[in-house]
Design a protein around this nucleic acid. Structure first.
Lengths: 230, 230
DNA sequence: TTGATATTGTCACAATCATAAACCAAATAA
DNA sequence: TTATTTGGTTTATGATTGTGACAATATCAA
């Protein structure tokens, strides 16, 4: 039997990273993809090359190396990247070790689905509260959490130091809810309502509009030659 | 009372548009946003300026003009854009008048939420079938549709000429489902499973990964100075 | 008619981004 | 040792994108 040992020279430059470098947004968007790819490879593997990772992430291998170089010098020349180091650095860089707390506002079909969604917890996010103003829903349980009225939002956010608000209300309430969340100290918002929320300084807002995604697909359906991106 | 009349010189170059021009992907992504903005303005308004539309869509006004110029010369100098013409052209360009049919595969919490989501029908998409391989779900109804086993997928796709497949299964089944959909003639896939699907020639794939969105937010939570994009 | 104002369409330029190439460094394999 | 593999860094290049500037066009008021 052949026991192969690779020596990964591991050096972390943890704390410094966040201060110094500004990672290009296009790279930031790919970091979670790399993390996802790491979860898909053979758990017995301890190393991975940029070429292999590029294949999994469906990007250019030079891109992988450049992207990862933003996190410090993680790889070992002639060998590749140590998977657990790489995963740790990615998680560190993305802030997944901070244990951010999130609340979901709007517990309709989508909000309920989000509450059940296991992918959040896996990545270090904790959904600590569900809010809805429908009297029929208040005090009922979804995914092990009791639905609260919005009037209790502020207390909750203070108590749990909630950093992320997930909006899954109908469009007409979304801006109001966003205002309340920001008011309660929430600094990041993930919006599923089909409206554009007002930009607020220092508040990060990302929107996922399901029907917009379909509309983009629809455009390319008529033009099979063209290729969509991102 | 003051009756103000604006003369919009309307000229449509319908059919030709799709053949000739290739609209930049970044623009294609904004077209649904403009369409959304048009729904939010006073229904009595008949015209809108690029400046106003830019404000609503939260982009630069030069950007709006350039984006819209890809659809032909829709505006009138010194006046603005005729709203109904603009809406029509956007819908035409995005293929929303084609009445694409879609199926949802995987009727868990998320799939069920998508089946109930009204935003699809509003934009001209019809969800005509739900599929799942869980025997406990087969033949039960969700959102007025009977859940069918995947074995019936092909017949269904042929019968309804399904163009879009929406995948809402757990990650481990997603690639298999995608393969089946493509096999059944589906040309566009909207994937909610947290995996990267294989690229297939002439098949459009868009992925929405809920936890990835949160991860990107998380990165910027640690760095309040930086600003996310897109 | 003329001038003032508003607004589009388009060009030019700058910024960002992706990709390839070149070259070196470090580790392994033979 | 030497050859091979692979990452890190720099540079170059072309593509895409965003934005300021401005001429062209329409309306309005005098």
């Amino acid at each position: 039997m052949n026991l192969i040992t690779y020596n990964f020279h591991i050096s972390l430059d943890c704390a410094l990273v966040k201060e110094n470098k500004k990672i290009p947004p296009a790279t930031v968007k790919r970091l979670p993809i790399y993390l996802q790819c790491l979860d898909q490879i053979d758990p017995n593997d301890i190393g991975i090359s940029s070429k292999k990772l590029a294949e999994l992430a469906k990007v250019n291998d030079a891109q992988v190396r450049r992207d990862l170089s933003h996190l410090g010098t993680l790889g070992t020349r002639g060998v590749g990247y140590d998977i657990s180091t790489l995963r740790n650095q990615l998680q560190l860089e993305l802030g997944l070790v901070e244990g951010w707390s999130a609340v979901i506002v709007g517990v309709g079909n989508l909000g309920s689905a989000l509450a059940h969604y296991g992918g959040f917890k896996d990545k270090g996010f904790g959904v600590v509260g569900l809010f809805d103003d429908d009297p029929k829903k208040i005090n009922s349980q979804v995914a092990g959490l009791v639905i609260k009225p919005l009037s209790e939002l502020e207390d909750y956010c203070n108590k749990f130091n909630v950093a992320i608000g997930i909006i899954a209300t109908p469009g007409e309430f979304a801006q109001n809810v966003a205002d309340q969340l920001i008011n309660c100290g929430v600094r990041s918002i993930l919006n599923f309502a089909p409206v554009l929320l007002k930009n607020v300084k220092d508040i990060q807002i990302r929107s996922v509009d399901l029907s917009q995604e379909l509309q983009i697909l629809s455009y390319y359906l008529d033009r099979p030659i063209l290729k969509a991106v991102d």
